[in-house]
């Protein structure tokens, strides 16, 4: 520990840097050598590329209405058919992946921040632990979908509402995971050693404790990402997700539910796209978990 404070000889510093690079390379090799992760990564990369390039590759504008082509079945002009507005389903799905990814990333970011904050606070500041944990227990007992419906009633359905509702839903479990892994790390000798040499609380939390809680957090957030893509679809289906005419995957399914037998293509294609994207994220999560945190092969429950 003390060695870091003193200027190390150049050769040693280079040695450390090389070792770090080697470790990173080895880690990446292990990660991409893991078949689940690789498949999942390819799927997600394709998904992300679609979202980024939606403007370029979509054959039509996602909100382009054509009342002469209402409920057209899949054809050369419309590969995935059209909906009740004559809008091209393929174009809507391509743009819809963007909405799903945006919501997913926001939820992951917010859950990551709040989960880490609450989890660390609970484990680090003893007197807050009970308070925070009981609060989180309460939120866990509160159905997130209903929160989203109430928010939509108040503010109108929007991406923001969906993000807030999903954040509230997924934060408690993530905070628990962070808290649990921080508690494990906290008891370890090197933390006590850091305290002993007089490292500040902030430094200890960031440099040592969080670094060690990161692996389970990343794994958990991958699954949160996956679940929030499905949850977005559920909220849109109930009419409280991104408002029309936004081409979210859930909205497209909702548009198609009245025509499920007459125009199956409206609901079926986005459903498959959601399933594939979520599958990709789950596979990535599995791979990450195996490589980052082999002991934690079980998704943690609430206790």
């Amino acid at each position: 520990m003390a060695a870091e404070a003193a200027p190390a000889p150049l050769s040693l510093a280079a040695e450390i840097a090389r070792a770090r690079r080697r470790r990173r390379a080895a880690f990446l090799r292990r990660l991409f050598g893991h078949p689940s992760f690789l498949i999942g990564f390819v799927i997600l990369a394709a998904f992300a590329a679609t979202a980024l390039l939606a403007d370029r590759i979509a054959p039509y504008a996602p909100t382009k209405i054509d009342y002469r082509a209402i409920l057209a079945p899949p054809s050369a002009a419309h590969w995935f058919g059209t909906d009740g507005f004559g809008r091209d389903i393929l174009s809507r799905i391509l743009h819809g992946t963007r909405v799903s990814l945006t919501i997913g990333l926001w939820v992951v970011a917010m859950v990551g921040v709040f989960g880490t904050l609450l989890g660390t606070l609970a484990s680090y500041v003893r007197w807050l632990d009970g308070l925070i944990m009981r609060g989180l227990d309460g939120l866990m007992a509160f159905p997130g979908v209903l929160l989203a419906i109430a928010l939509a009633a108040a503010l109108g359905p929007s991406e923001t509402n969906a993000i807030i509702a999903l954040t509230v839903t997924f934060t408690p479990r993530t905070a628990r995971i962070v808290r649990a892994s921080v508690l494990v790390v906290q008891g370890m000798q090197y933390i006590e050693a850091a305290h002993a040499v007089g490292a500040g609380h902030g430094r200890i939390v960031f440099r040592y404790i969080l670094a060690n809680a990161l692996s389970p957090l990343i794994v958990q957030l991958t699954f949160v990402f996956a679940v929030s893509i499905i949850a977005e679809a559920i909220l849109s289906f109930l009419g409280v997700g991104p408002p029309p005419p936004a081409p979210s995957l859930g909205n497209i399914i909702a548009d198609g539910r009245s025509y499920i037998q007459e125009a199956w293509w409206i609901a079926v294609f986005p459903g498959i796209v959601i399933a594939v994207a979520v599958l990709g994220l789950n596979l990535m999560g599995d791979g990450l978990r195996d490589v980052l945190d082999p002991r934690q092969r079980v998704e943690r429950g609430g206790h």
């Binding site: 996956a226 499905i230 679809a233 559920i234 289906f237 399914i253 539910r257 499920i260 037998q261 609901a267 459903g271 959601i274 399933a275 594939v276 979520v278 599958l279 789950n282 596979l283």
Partner: peptide, 21 residues
């Protein structure tokens, strides 16, 4: 894994058509 990845309400609609209709 597929079970985990399919949106359940969507699966429900498919089941209605298949087994109900």
């Amino acid at each position: 894994l597929i079970g985990l990845s399919i949106p359940d309400f969507w699966f429900g609609i498919v089941l209605i058509i298949l087994f109900g209709v």
